[in-house]
């Protein structure tokens, strides 16, 4: 479209009028999502940065308080800030690698020529369809210390039982365990990636007399790094925002052991009605996720292989 620029000016006529009409309709048809971005993403983002410097609480008039909201978070006046950061980081560090490795392993198994592949895929994907309230109720039941299935199995095996989400030490690991149940969404993305690897690469390994291990580490893993990258980034963003489980199952407890960052934000905004402070809290999360994503992006040149750049 750029090259047409010169001759567009040379003979203004049908072609030029058509280009102008096309541009007009293009912009018109794209306008819902452009407006949506401005109204529901960019506008709110700017607005929330603005009110993070105020004491806005919906009910009374707001006044400018400078950095006070941020200060009271960082200097520990609000005791929950560091706690929730710690708890969330623990959850993220534990759950993201486990989810990615688990999903990748299952996808590798399902990518082989096996009977009933579609059935297995469906079964592994099924738990991701369950609404978070419902899965929380189910797992609350499984985790029940007195009557729940998990403790009964442990008892049957003569292993020590656990208080699961009702113990301060086990609460986060329990929720990570629960998150592994819904790893099917990530797995399907891996499967899609695996199906995109050209067969001739594997045939080349066969010709050279390579083993299955060669195929996995020299071909599959390198070719899958873009997908691994995508799933890691999305896993990070998702895990940092975990909310429903804490709200429904633990209420942030016991003793704030599951006071996840989103839950902390929610309490500050919708229970304490401190919108200014809550906006500051959510902006800090935004910056954290932005920095982490940038870090992963920066590091990606070291470990992500893109076909278009490769020499093969």
């Amino acid at each position: 479209m750029r090259e047409n620029g010169s001759d567009r000016r040379a003979k203004p006529g049908k072609k030029w009028r058509r280009a102008r009409k096309e541009a007009l309709f293009g912009f018109l048809f794209a306008s819902p999502v452009i407006l949506g971005y401005l109204i529901f993403v960019f506008g709110p983002l700017a607005f929330s940065l603005g009110i993070s410097f105020t004491d806005y609480n919906i009910l009374s008039k707001m006044s400018f308080v400078g950095l006070a909201n941020y200060r009271s978070l960082f200097d520990g006046t609000n005791p929950f800030f560091y706690k929730s950061l710690l708890v969330t980081s623990y959850y993220v560090v534990l759950s993201v690698p486990l989810q990615v490795v688990f999903a990748f392993a299952v996808a590798l198994l399902l990518n082989r020529s096996i009977r009933g592949k579609a059935v297995f895929r469906t079964i592994f994907f099924l738990p991701t369809m369950v609404p978070v309230v419902a899965s929380s109720v189910i797992w609350l039941w499984l985790f029940n210390p007195d009557l729940g299935l998990l403790n009964q199995v442990l008892k049957f095996l003569h292993l020590p039982q656990s208080q699961w989400i009702f113990s301060e030490r086990m609460a986060v690991p329990s929720l990570v365990l629960m998150s592994l149940w819904t790893v099917g969404g990530t797995m399907v993305i891996f499967l899609a990636g695996l199906q995109g690897i050209p067969k001739h690469l594997y045939e080349a390994v066969d010709v050279d007399g390579g083993t299955a291990r060669h195929k996995l580490f020299r071909i599959t893993v390198p070719m899958m790094t873009p997908t691994l990258f995508f799933n890691t980034v999305m896993g990070f963003i998702g895990s940092f925002q975990v909310f429903g489980q804490a709200y429904i199952m633990t209420g942030g407890g016991p003793n704030n052991a599951t006071l996840f960052y989103s839950f902390f934000t929610y309490r500050e905004a919708f229970e304490s009605m401190r919108m200014g402070s809550a906006s500051a809290i959510s902006w800090i999360l935004f910056v954290i996720i932005l920095l982490l994503t940038l870090l992963i992006f920066k590091s990606s040149s070291l470990w992500v292989y893109y076909e278009s750049e490769g020499k093969a």
Binding site: F40, I51, S262, S282
Partner: peptide, 16 residues
């Protein structure tokens, strides 16, 4: 914007 945490826009949207 897909990469942006929804929590950030939630509060201003609610206020709006």
């Amino acid at each position: 914007s897909m990469m942006m945490p929804g929590a950030v826009t939630l509060i201003p949207q609610f206020i709006g």
